[in-house]
Design a protein around this nucleic acid. Structure first.
Length: 736
DNA sequence: TGATCTGCGGTTTTT
DNA sequence: CCGCAGATCA
């Protein structure tokens, strides 16, 4: 009896096919991680491949960690030499070693999205780009998609000749990239793109990695983007031993540049590809699986496959529509509480999923009220918090003197009386003399424009220099503690004596703990190493096995996980599928991506799946009325039990009184097929989707109607004037 | 010149 | 409901 006997036929075939390109189309819950780990074991133990020559790439550290653990259990000897890594950390490791070949220093800093935005702000200021017209975020989005397709600033510029708007983006891209380089910093997309660049310009480096990684495996292949594809392609060029695992139905990262074509066209890109489909599901009940299959069936352009299972039929899927999002949350929390009370499961058996992070709040409140432990994944990243970013900026300043962004962030934190004007003068001087911001600070005395302010800069420079000189003798945690003491960061917070400050202090303590944990776990802890780890963690990575709490997260974060009980909440048109997807240039395509997301969500459930929605919910402080999601209608009613909302009579009466006006105006029907279709009210003779005429803006289409106090706030997409929000009583819109 | 207050606009998903 | 820019205060 060998470890491979427990695999099914297809799984075994995948494990034993070790040479040449292999595409494994693995449906949800079909045991793909099992296949990958067994495949690694087989390579080592039966094919006698040196573990050192195996590379497995995943998307999150959590997935990498799990794979590593399972390989360790499976393989007796040498498992720790197998390189299991995320795309990003793989690239960082390669770049730390060789990036000096392409014009960066090996102690580069990694910029997160906040850093990117600050840098872009600076770029726009410098280029006199009006950020009202070109928003930092949209500029960055354009640059990100360029990088994901490996388009460098020069190529970008050539591609947009004649297009004024895009020319501005090209300028911004060029300057943004120039500043990144002079700060010796890379953004997330650069990590991949620069690695590809390195391989393309330095054949000797590429060849080293060809020999190093003779067997490649890539998980979640459907979520790779153009740059990642190129990276894999380059690495596999010599030995062609590339095994990718993915499911086109679970491709949900198009917005991040993921190219579904990578999986659909894999066979074209790699000759003699062996394709194996894993269609047996080991996770969910038949009901859940059938429902998910029926939903995803509505998508076109997918690789045909149907998941089946030998698991029991299970109980029907439960669908509830509630009056408000509060009742929805109450139900979910109540249901979890009763499950645990009745001994039907643990808190950790339950996951609450939703489309947007903002939806977590109601659930949090109800969970806190009910005294149920929970873990919120996502939202504001721990490392994105102000106090954490401040302290990290000190560490970054010490680690990479060229990182202007970090220096500028903390030069006046705590307050040293150095304001915007002084900063501007120092920056001017630095620009003029082509030096870094920090180097200009060191020369503060010689900058005439600074006059008296120079004296304020000096202690800061001295402080940083002192820390830097101590660096060889201090551990990272000692360094951090010294920064906290010397700057008085915590002292000031204690003095504030507010709840908020208390929270920040706790976060700082948490940061210190994280440093200590890092020092204990890393082989040779360094400041750069810590900062790198910090830059590349995802929030999902913090989910620990074995802890007993309810998990709250977005559908995106839920990918790859499974839970006995899943509550898929906010199943409403405009929320899921999202408003954005419904109103995009190509709604068909974007709704298909939302549907895949729905499929991912449903297939997370092992035993019990709940689908819930609310007639009305508070979105950004406004009441919104959404019809039931189309995805609900795609679930055959045979598989689903629709329970009416069990609000008691008194509550119902109160609500009727409170929302009488709204209700008459917006009798949103539960199974109304069109999105946002609103019954014509007494006041308005037009509804969402109607074309209207405005006295000044001309013709347009009504995109949304929101009840706002006594009036209705109407959003209209005008043909010439663009999107406008207006009050119905003032706008005098006429239906055309 | 720097610190603080107020009004406005903007909002999916994340390594 | 939150962050940011501009105006005002010290």
């Amino acid at each position: 009896m060998s470890i491979y006997d427990t695999l099914n036929e297809q799984q075994r075939e995948a494990v034993f096919h070790t040479e040449g390109p292999l595409l494994i189309l693995a449906g949800a819950g079909s045991g793909k991680t099992r296949v990958l780990t067994h495949r690694i074991a087989y390579l080592i133990e039966e094919q006698h491949v040196n573990p050192w020559n195996i590379l497995a790439i995943t998307f999150t550290n959590k997935a990498a960690g799990e794979m590593r653990e399972r390989v360790d259990q499976l393989v007796g000897f040498g498992a720790d030499s197998v390189w299991v890594s995320t795309f990003h950390s793989l690239c960082v490791r390669i770049l730390r070693r060789y990036i000096d070949r392409i014009g960066y220093g090996t102690s580069f800093t990694i910029y997160d999205s906040d850093d990117q935005k600050s840098l872009m702000k600076e770029v726009c200021r410098k280029l006199n780009i009006d950020t009202k017209i070109y928003k930092e975020r949209s500029l960055l989005a354009a640059i990100s998609s360029a990088k994901n397709e490996l388009v460098n600033p020069m190529e970008f510029e050539l591609n947009v000749l004649g297009d004024f708007g895009k020319k501005k983006i090209a300028e911004a891209y060029k300057e943004y990239q120039r500043q990144l380089q002079s700060n010796n910093a890379l953004d997330f997309d650069d990590l991949i793109m620069k690695t590809v660049e390195l391989f393309q310009t330095c054949p000797d480096v590429l060849d080293y990695y060809h020999e190093r990684f003779r067997y490649l495996m890539v998980d979640e292949y459907q979520d790779t983007n153009g740059a990642q594809f190129q990276l894999i392609h380059l690495l596999a060029r010599k030995y062609h031993n590339l095994c990718v695992v993915g499911d086109d139905d679970q491709s949900i990262y198009k917005f991040r540049g993921a190219n579904i074509e990578n999986i659909l066209n894999f066979e074209k890109a790699f000759a003699d590809t062996k394709v194996i489909k894993l269609e047996q599901n080991y996770r969910s009940t038949q009901n859940i699986l059938n429902a998910a299959n029926e939903v995803i069936r509505n998508n076109t352009g997918r690789k045909a496959k149907t998941l089946w299972t030998e698991n029991e039929e299970g109980t029907p899927i439960l669908f509830h529509q509630f009056q408000t999002s509060f009742e929805e949350a109450e139900f979910v929390v109540g249901d979890i509480a009763s499950k645990v009370r009745e001994g039907e499961g643990e808190y950790s058996d339950c996951a609450v999923l939703y489309r947007t992070n903002a939806q977590s709040r109601v659930f949090e409140e109800k969970l806190v009220f009910a005294g149920i432990p929970y873990k919120l994944v996502g939202g504001v990243n721990f490392y994105a918090r102000k106090e954490i970013k401040d302290l990290l900026a000190y560490l970054k300043t010490i680690d990479n003197a060229l990182d202007d962004l970090a220096v500028r962030r903390i030069i006046n934190v705590p307050k040293r009386g150095i304001g915007a004007t002084t900063l501007g003068r120092i920056q001017d001087y630095a620009d003029e003399h082509e030096m870094s911001f920090y180097d200009a600070l060191k020369l503060a005395d010689e900058i005439p424009a600074l006059s008296r302010s120079a004296s304020k800069v000096k202690p800061f420079v001295l402080f940083i220099q002192t820390l830097r000189s101590k660096l060889p003798f201090l551990s990272v945690s000692e360094l951090l503690k010294e920064i906290i003491d010397e700057t008085g960061y915590v002292r000031d917070l204690v003095a504030e004596d507010t709840e908020e400050a208390q929270g920040r202090i706790e976060n700082i303590e948490e940061l210190v703990n994280k440093v200590v944990t890092y020092e204990e776990s890393a082989e040779s802890p360094t400041l750069s190493g810590f900062l790198e780890e910090v830059a590349l963690v995802a929030d999902i990575d913090s989910l620990e096995e074995g802890s007993n709490y309810v998990v709250l997260m977005t559908l995106h974060s839920a990918k790859g996980l499974e839970f006995p009980n899943v509550y898929l909440t906010g199943m409403e048109e405009g929320l899921f599928p999202s408003y954005m997807s419904l109103h995009s240039d190509d709604p068909e395509k974007e709704i298909e991506e939302e549907r895949r997301l729905c499929y991912v969500g449903m297939t997370r459930a092992m035993k019990k799946l709940y689908l819930t929605c609310a007639r009305q919910r508070l979105v950004r402080g406004e009441v919104q009325y959404n019809p039931v999601s189309r995805f609900i209608k795609e679930v055959p009613s045979l598989l689903m039990e629709s329970a009416g909302h069990k609000t008691d009579k008194l509550k119902e009466a109160q609500k009727n009184a409170a929302y009488a006006a709204a209700k008459t105006a917006f009798k949103s029907k539960a199974f109304e097929p069109r999105q946002f279709t609103v019954k014509k009210s007494e006041g308005l003779d037009y509804g969402v989707g109607d074309t209207v005429q405005h006295i000044k803006f001309g013709r347009g289409v009504v995109a949304a109607i929101v009840e706002g106090g006594k009036d209705y706030e109407v959003t209209v997409d005008f043909e010439s004037a663009g999107r406008k929000k207006m009050f119905a009583s003032f706008a005098k819109l006429k239906k055309v």
